[in-house]
């Protein structure tokens, strides 16, 4: 729902809202709970990242000599996806925004976040299908919406891709990944996903969408299911990822 700027100004006068991050007044940005400054300050990823999982390297020269150099964990334990991309780093105002979006939950942030996300990424090869990482029904019920779906919808519109949200499903409830450590995360999501119509993904390039990538366990497990069904390349795109 887009509100006309004039009404936004009237609304801001009647019911002013302050920026969730810096507490200064929000002046008609059209983005709920964020001032233009903080929204512009979302942490972008500059410098070299692991070409596989997207993790930023500590040294700016990391990829100069060997462009295909993967990070230690990808080499030791290669993830199932072909590439993971992140629009930004999970810190500062972006972190606050994702928290509000997911846990308030403030669904109205979905559209502007997706727009921002779409502006940050480019694809080498255009994928065929966009799929959000699914929620279990129980989680969906309490949150009301799947945060990844709204992002995926924005991406599919921007890049004119097919959106599919009813094939990949979560078949058992899992504990929230944030509560777990790295090893536990992998075990937690093991066997949690399934494809209802495996044939649909055969040889197709898949773009998986989620909000945050930390260890990549969820994305990796989804990719495994997709690859087993014979999909083409799987690119995992998230709104943000942690630096470590």
């Amino acid at each position: 729902m887009q509100i006309h700027p004039i009404f936004q100004h009237i609304l801001e006068f009647l019911i002013p809202s302050s920026c969730a991050y810096c507490r200064s007044p929000v002046n008609g940005t059209g983005i709920p709970r964020f001032c233009g400054q903080c929204w512009a300050d979302f942490a972008r990823i500059n410098g070299p990242v692991c070409p596989r999982c997207g993790k930023p390297f500590g040294s700016p020269e990391a990829l100069i000599h060997s462009p295909g150099h993967e990070c230690a964990s990808c080499r030791r334990d290669p993830p199932q996806y072909d590439q993971a991309l992140a629009a930004g780093l999970f810190e500062g105002p972006l972190r606050e925004a994702i928290h509000l979006y997911k846990y308030r939950p403030l669904s109205a942030l979905g559209r502007p976040l997706a727009t921002w996300m779409a502006g940050q990424v480019a694809f080498d090869a255009k994928p065929d299908i966009v799929m959000p990482v699914p929620l279990h029904r129980k989680r969906l019920r309490s949150r009301g919406f799947n945060q990844a779906l709204l992002l995926a919808h924005g991406i599919s519109k921007k890049f004119d891709l097919t959106l599919c949200y009813d094939n990949l499903v979560r078949i058992r409830p899992t504990r929230p990944q944030v509560e777990l450590t790295g090893a536990e995360r992998t075990a937690n999501v093991k066997g949690a996903f399934s494809l209802l119509r495996p044939t649909e993904v055969k040889s197709r390039g898949i773009l998986l969408i989620d909000d945050v990538l930390t260890t990549g366990a969820t994305m990796s497990e989804c990719s495994r299911v997709l690859k087993e069904a014979g999909s083409g390349s799987v690119v995992a795109l998230t709104l943000a990822r942690t630096a470590e």
């Binding site: 729902m1 669904s107 109205a108 029904r137 969906l140 019920r141 009301g144 919406f145 799947n146 779906l149 709204l150 919808h153 949200y165 009813d166």
Partner: peptide, 20 residues
Amino acid sequence: FFLLPERFYHRLTIVVDPRK
């Protein structure tokens, strides 16, 4: 709303927050 078939429910969430 939640009793809607999951497909329709997801479709709905794209248009409007079911809570709203």
